[in-house]
Every structure is written in C-alpha cells, then in structure tokens.
Design a protein around this nucleic acid. Sequence first.
DNA 1: ATGGCCTTGGTACAAGGA
Length: 255
Amino acid sequence: MKIATWNVNSLAVRLPQLLDWLALHQPDVLCLQETKLTDDKFPHAQINIAGYQVQWFGQKTYNGVALISRLPALDVVRNIPGHDDAQARVIAGTVGGVRIVGAYIPNGQSVESEKFPYKLAWLSALRDWIAKEQAVHPRLALLGDYNIAPEDRDVHDPVAWAGQVLCTAEERAHFKALLAAGLYDSFRLFEQPPKQYSWWDYRMLAFRKNQGLRIDHILVSEALKARVTSCVIDKLTRKNERPSDHAPVIVELSD
DNA sequence: ATGGCCTTGGTACAAGGA
C-alpha cells in the first residue's frame, strides 16, 4: 500500500499536475492540502476518471483538503470533532483498514501574529483527537503539511530560522508530543542523507540552492511502523513546470 | 547581485504563504 501527501498550493492551478502525478506514482492514498476550492468547484469527476475515489472539504482562497484513494474511504470526518474551526484543514477516512488523517496544520504566520496562538491551540486539539483516534484505530497514519520543521537538521539554515515560526520550541514540542503518543516519523525510520526538505520558497532561487525546510510529514502508529518499507520525498515533482512550492512525500507499506 | 515567487480576488496591487 502506497500512501502519500502533497500540498498542491491551489488545485485550480495544479489539477493537470495532480492527474499526471497519480498516473505516474499510482498511490493507493493521496492526501492533498491547500486545494483552495469551495466544494462546488472541486474537480471530482476528473479524479474519478483517473481511477480514484475522492472526499473533499474546502473553502475559498485558503486551506482546503482532500482524500484521494483507490478503495472508498469509510467513516469520513471533516475537521477535528469538537474543535470549532472556520477553516477547512482536516479530512480523515479509513482506507483498506488504515485510518488516514490528512491535515493542513496552520502556518502561524509569525510568533507575534494572532495566528500563532491559533496554531498552538489547533495543535493541542489535534493531539487530543489523535490520541482518541489511535485508541479506536491502531493502524493510523497522520499525514500532511505540518508547518513544523521538527529539528534543526530539517532546516537549511537553522541559525537564521531559530525561534521563527515553523521552528519554535512550542511547535517542536507539539511535534514531539505526537511522537511521545506513539507515532513515528516515517522519514526518520530510515538512514537519510543530510539536507532533505519538502518545501522551498518560490523566491530567492531557494529550490535551486536547496534552501528548504522539511515540514510535510507522514507519521505512523506502532502497528503501521512495522509495515513501512520506505519513505521518499518526491523532489522531482518540485522541478516540474508550474510546481507547487511543496514536494509530495510517499510511504510504502507492506501488506 | 546584498536580488530573484506564486496565488487569489478582481482588474490594481495588497495580502498571504512558509
């Protein structure tokens, strides 16, 4: 089973790239973030024609998530139950016996912004909910754009980024709390070369200089950890024409 | 080169992203 996550930064712009990507990589599950489409505009027919089921949850201009899968997604949930949120950031469903939680964690903008406490409160709600989900679904994957670089080695210039949003101690503590709750960062289950990132700013030739951050993650529960055979950041897709600023992340699970 | 983007809404350019 191949599961993946990709922040597409506008599905209105990136639909052709998405269809190409599905045909090339043939994932069993793909979680999308930043679709930026209201539900009436979601291109479900094209995704169905490509051989996939899809559940979606969006809004105008910002945010928006989708869960694409070969098999139908069961028990689909939109956003964090009990956490009042005007923004479309989570879609979850059970696919092939695996609980898939696709999340677009808030960016936070800057430590001084009112969006930063919103991010921290959101992460607290996520943590509480995931703990409950794990109790019900031992085989669980939490994948998406976390907007957190977990460690300095996930940052091209840790000195410049020290204390900045995406790299603060508070955000990293939330990431660590997910690990402490029994989730594993698939990427770190394997020996990895240095300077591996999943996002590069469109500006400053950041991609060409590999000035990026690793902020897109696939966390898996203990029961799934034993089945993870690889975790790859698909950097090639970031080189495409009209790319998203994020690269997809892909995990292979044995049967 | 001490810089260099992209998307949206709306139709000029400001705001947001990470």
